[in-house]
């Protein structure tokens, strides 16, 4: 992790906020998936920077598995049951509303965090959990389709796991939390297909 020394933890957090906002606001599933992978990359990088290189590699690996499962799911849906009802697109005002929601929560979090000292750079993992947790929750609340709602869920989960692994960095705990993440992804994939099959009607 000695490469890219200019990539400071603060910059990584800004990158995570940007990626999380992409997931919460944008409709394009490919961009959202790329943003999720970027989150895994940045969280892994951050954990490496904070002195947990083994756990960081595990986070990269889990990110790869998660990305692969989600890509295969959505690709299968598009190939086999793609209809106008599949992954419905939101109108511009709805996206703007989501951006507004993220901005408002972000502003609130920043104000409370800086005044209380919780968001100071001394405890960067706490910041990651706060930001990704908040953005992930917004995505969960404002989305309806299992795939998009699931991306919010994974953002929330990744924020917590990054934070928790700085407290308890044993590989067994990291692996178990990674297992939970894979389990959640499999459930999201299953529910995405189950909800989209209705659009196709009887086989």
């Amino acid at each position: 992790m000695a490469i890219f020394p200019w990539l400071t933890p603060d910059l990584l957090v800004i990158g995570l906020i940007f990626a999380g906002t992409t997931i919460a606001v944008l409709e394009n599933w490919k961009l959202s998936l790329l943003a999720l992978l970027a989150e895994f990359l940045l969280c892994g990088w951050l954990l490496g920077r904070l002195g947990h290189p083994d756990v960081a590699i595990l986070v990269f690996a889990i990110g790869g598995i998660v990305g692969l499962i989600l890509y295969m799911t959505i690709h299968w849906v598009e190939q086999n049951i793609a209809t106008p009802a599949t992954l419905p697109r939101a109108s511009m005002p709805v996206s703007l509303f989501r951006l507004l929601a993220v901005s408002l929560v972000g502003l609130g979090l920043y104000t409370v965090g800086t005044n209380s000292g919780l968001l100071l750079s001394a405890y960067i993992a706490g910041q990651v959990f706060a930001w990704l947790g908040a953005i992930g929750t917004i995505a969960m609340v404002t989305r309806r389709h299992p795939f998009r709602l699931g991306l919010g869920m994974l953002t929330f989960l990744l924020g917590f796991i990054t934070f928790f692994l700085t407290l308890e960095d044993s590989l067994l705990v990291a692996g178990t939390l990674g297992g939970i993440m894979v389990l959640v992804v499999l459930t999201i994939s299953y529910l995405s297909i189950a909800s989209d099959l209705v659009a196709k009607g009887p086989a």
């Binding site: 969960m140 299992p146 709602l149 869920m153 929330f156 989960l157 959640v184 459930t187 999201i188 529910l191 189950a194 909800s195 099959l197 209705v198």
Partner: peptide
């Protein structure tokens, strides 16, 4: 197949 509302609600709350 069809409504996944309750399953998603359960999963979200569990997460």
């Amino acid at each position: 197949h069809g409504s996944t509302r309750n399953a998603m609600a359960f999963l979200g709350l569990t997460v």
